[in-house]
């Protein structure tokens, strides 16, 4: 085959294949566009941005502004059950009235301060326990052989897909006075009368750790799985003992997973309502439960809003850490 056949063959092919009406040898720039194509070409990018952006502005950001606004209003009987911030006075003057009373009330009543501190403490302790259980689990899964790894991972994810409420409910049957544990212990003769397990701090921690454990294990697994085993071998080769290697290589490299997992447990746990309500005792008052009863029992919307804003203030730092971490992670994967 020589090059001589080339151009001729091509010309012939062009004659055969070029569609009728196409400008000779030129691109189909004159191909007519449908109205939709024209719309997309012109506004496509804008439309894609505007839809989710608009949704979040309306249903995520605006609600917070309203909560902020109402937290400065005063409670009243009526619909809506709060006073307006801005009123038109006679003569067209605008009157803005910020009631700081709700926040002063929060500071004044030890109930709220205690609830906030208890929430932070419970969330912190639960996060640490979840980390202590979740880290070895994630490590074991990451180091297992492929078929087992998928099975273990599936087992971690599976509770995710089953009802959270029902998983919490399951513990009532286990922990209550005539529940499984107490019955078993009494049958074995270890104790004579039931241990108070339900509605204590113990049951609260059990519930939170149990519910949030998968959130801890998954990000940890994701970082540990990417960890190059040859790094550990290199450390061992250079004379580092396994535990030392763990402390100096594995642990620092899995820090992103630790941060992500801890934030995924800590932040929602602070505001948790269902678990303290079903498993926690009357004396462990958590802020989520306070907000709930302020809203549903007392019907005091302004105070509930102030409680929410105060809770957000506590959570701003961890949320920013979490977002920063998420962004870094996304940038890395998107760049790679």
């Amino acid at each position: 085959m020589t090059g001589a056949a080339g151009p001729e063959a091509r010309e012939q092919a062009e004659r055969t294949w070029a569609s009728p009406g196409a400008s000779p040898g030129g691109p189909d720039r004159d191909r007519p566009l449908t109205p939709i194509q024209r719309l997309v070409a012109r506004f496509g990018r804008g439309l894609v941005i505007a839809t989710p952006y608009g949704w979040l502005l309306l249903f995520f950001l605006l609600p917070f502004i309203i909560v902020l606004k109402i937290s400065f209003a005063e409670f009243r009987l009526g619909v809506p059950p709060y006073t307006p911030l801005v009123t038109w006075l006679e003569g067209g003057y605008l009157h803005l009235k910020l009631a700081l009373g709700n926040y002063l009330f929060l500071l004044d009543d030890p109930l709220y301060i205690t609830a906030y501190l208890t929430s932070l403490k419970v969330a912190l302790v639960s996060t640490v326990i979840a980390l202590l259980i979740g880290y070895p689990m994630a490590y074991a899964i990451a180091r297992s052989t492929p078929p087992w790894r998928s099975v273990f991972l599936l087992l971690v994810i599976l509770p995710f897909w089953t009802s959270f409420l029902i998983r919490v409910y399951a513990w009532i049957g286990i922990l209550k006075n005539n529940g499984l544990i107490n019955n078993a212990l009494m049958a074995l003769g270890v104790i004579d009368e039931p241990l108070p397990l339900l509605n204590t701090e113990v049951s609260l921690y059990v519930g939170i750790v149990y519910s949030y454990l998968p959130f801890m294990v998954l990000p940890l697994y994701a970082t540990l799985e990417k960890l190059d085993v040859s790094l550990l071998e290199a450390a061992a080769d250079l004379g580092s003992r396994p535990f030392k290697t763990f402390l100096t290589v594995t642990l620092p490299l899995s820090l992103p997973g630790i941060v992500a997992g801890s934030m995924l447990v800590f932040i929602p746990a602070v505001g948790e309502f269902v678990i303290p309500d079903l498993l926690g005792g009357a004396d462990t008052l958590m802020i989520g439960k306070v907000l709930w009863s302020e809203f549903f029992s007392n019907r005091d919307w302004p105070v509930a809003s102030a409680v929410a804003i105060a809770m957000l203030v506590f959570l701003v730092v961890p949320i920013v850490i979490f977002q920063h971490h998420q962004q870094q992670h996304a940038d890395r994967t998107e760049a790679g």
């Binding site: 085959m1 020589t2 090059g3 056949a5 080339g6 001729e8 063959a9 091509r10």
Partner: peptide, 9 residues
Amino acid sequence: VCIQERVGT
């Protein structure tokens, strides 16, 4: 190279 010679592109 052979394919290029054959198609001439």
